[in-house]
Design a protein around this nucleic acid. Structure first.
Lengths: 147, 147
DNA sequence: TTGAAAATGAAAGTCGTTTTCATTTAGATT
DNA sequence: AATCTAAATGAAAACGACTTTCATTTTCAA
């Protein structure tokens, strides 16, 4: 990794090492705050902006990308081999993934129809995850708005 | 419209009338700032927060919904009969729509596989619109990064 | 006409993100 | 090993879109 960064003109530092390592160990879709908390456990002196900058750097060198779900918080998603969509639970804010191979063809085709050159796509489904679904079912014994 | 709002416990005011009318006259995907600018032409005394609050109100009563593309700016999309996806031009930031009927089935099915109950979905394709595509083609006479 | 609830405009507050700046550090070059 | 320059760091401030507060005004049902 040090070499990889060097060839791109970046230096390795203890902080960076720690941040990178933590990021790649963690589950996907982490926020700056979450990563900050995690690295602070290992090194109390690391600053928020350093974590933020390194997350940006990870994106810049192509190892992650920002994900925006519209809740105002940027998440960082490791760039994986397989394109995927997101299932965002409205209730607990948890983010799951789902495969999208079947969709890619259709999307490209759709975009193509409009003389639009796609570079990237995002598919997000908002709803309730299995867990919250059950909990909500319990909450609404006296159904609020239908049948 | 006045009646419609009254039944929901909201009052009509000259400012609200103007804001609603402007919103529904305008093209889709407007931002608060854009609508603010537009109504200010007709009434210099309208405040930003009034425009913002009314845009929220339009959403609350189900006539529009917020769209978040990840550029940090909330757009307001009239609720239309037909579900659609967005084509977001990376270059000029213009937003086009495309139909998604074919996709809906697939998405529901995919989500279903994970015991996830979908409420809403967003499909966004980022890329270059026809116009920017041509312009970029001109810009990159000396191809920067491939073959 | 009147009174309570809703709406308004200006200003301040919030909060995630980004930049600034003084200082330290990495690592290439002597 | 010492030196030097660009990069990196941490703290704090700045930024900007969004949201709330508050004093005042307006709507509209009674």
């Amino acid at each position: 990794m040090k070499e990889f960064l060097r060839t791109k003109g970046f230096k390795m530092t203890p902080q960076r090492e720690l941040i990178f390592r933590s990021f790649f160990e963690l589950e996907e879709h982490i926020t700056v705050d979450e990563l900050y908390d995690k690295v602070r456990i290992l090194d109390r002196s690391i600053g928020y902006s350093t974590v933020w900058r390194n997350l940006k750097l990870i994106c810049k060198v192509g190892l992650a990308e920002e994900v925006n779900l519209g809740d105002g918080i940027t998440r960082y998603d490791r760039v994986t081999k397989v394109p995927h969509g997101h299932l965002f639970c409205i209730s607990c804010k948890k983010l799951e993934e789902f495969p999208v191979e079947q969709l890619v063809g259709l999307l490209a085709q759709t975009a193509g129809d409009k003389s639009f050159t796609p570079e990237n796509f995002k598919i997000e489904i908002q709803g309730f995850c299995e867990k919250c679904q059950k909990e909500n079912a319990n909450d609404s014994k006296n159904g609020e708005d239908d049948v």
